[in-house]
Amino acid sequence: MKRKQIIWAIILFAGFTACKKDVSDNFVIYTNNAMNDTVWARNLPTNAAIYSLFDSISPQPMVDSFDIAKGDTLRFAKNIEIIFPANSLAGPIGVTLSGKIKVEVQSLLSKGDMIKAMKSSTNYAALFETVGTFCIKASKNGQELSLLPSTNIKLRFLDPDDNPKTSLHVFAGKESYQVPSWGYDMDFTWLKTIDGSTINIWTKYGSGPNKGYEIVSKNLRWIAAGKHMDSTVSSAKLFAILPPNYTNKNTVAFASFNDSKTVVQLNADYSSRSFSAKNIPLQKKITIVTITKIGNTFYLGKRNVDDIGNIGVYNILPEKKSLKNILDFVEGL
Score class of each variant (00 low, 15 high):
residue 10 I to S: 10
residue 12 L to C: 06
residue 23 V to Q: 08
residue 24 S to A: 14
residue 30 Y to A: 06
residue 40 W to A: 11
residue 41 A to C: 06
residue 42 R to E: 13
residue 46 T to S: 15
residue 47 N to K: 12
residue 49 A to G: 01
residue 50 I to S: 01
residue 51 Y to L: 05
residue 64 D to M: 13
residue 65 S to Q: 13
residue 70 K to L: 14
residue 71 G to N: 07
residue 74 L to K: 07
residue 89 L to A: 07
residue 90 A to S: 15
residue 91 G to Q: 04
residue 97 L to T: 03
residue 110 S to R: 14
residue 118 M to K: 03
residue 120 S to P: 00
residue 127 L to H: 14
residue 129 E to Y: 04
residue 132 G to R: 08
residue 136 I to W: 04
residue 142 G to C: 09
residue 144 E to P: 02
residue 149 P to R: 08
residue 149 P to H: 05
residue 158 L to H: 03
residue 160 P to W: 08
residue 173 G to Y: 10
residue 177 Y to A: 14
residue 180 P to V: 09
residue 184 Y to N: 05
residue 194 I to P: 00
residue 197 S to Y: 06
residue 199 I to G: 00
residue 201 I to Q: 12
residue 204 K to F: 06
residue 204 K to W: 05
residue 206 G to F: 03
residue 206 G to T: 00
residue 209 P to A: 13
residue 211 K to T: 13
residue 214 E to H: 02
residue 219 N to F: 11
residue 238 L to K: 11
residue 239 F to I: 03
residue 242 L to P: 00
residue 243 P to H: 04
residue 243 P to G: 02
residue 252 V to C: 10
residue 257 F to R: 10
residue 258 N to H: 14
residue 262 T to Q: 04
residue 273 R to C: 11
residue 279 N to E: 08
residue 280 I to S: 02
residue 289 V to S: 01
residue 291 I to E: 04
residue 292 T to E: 06
residue 303 R to V: 11
residue 305 V to P: 00
residue 309 G to S: 14
residue 312 G to M: 10
residue 318 P to I: 11
residue 320 K to Q: 15
residue 320 K to C: 06
residue 322 S to T: 15
residue 323 L to V: 01
residue 324 K to Q: 12
residue 326 I to P: 00
residue 333 L to C: 07
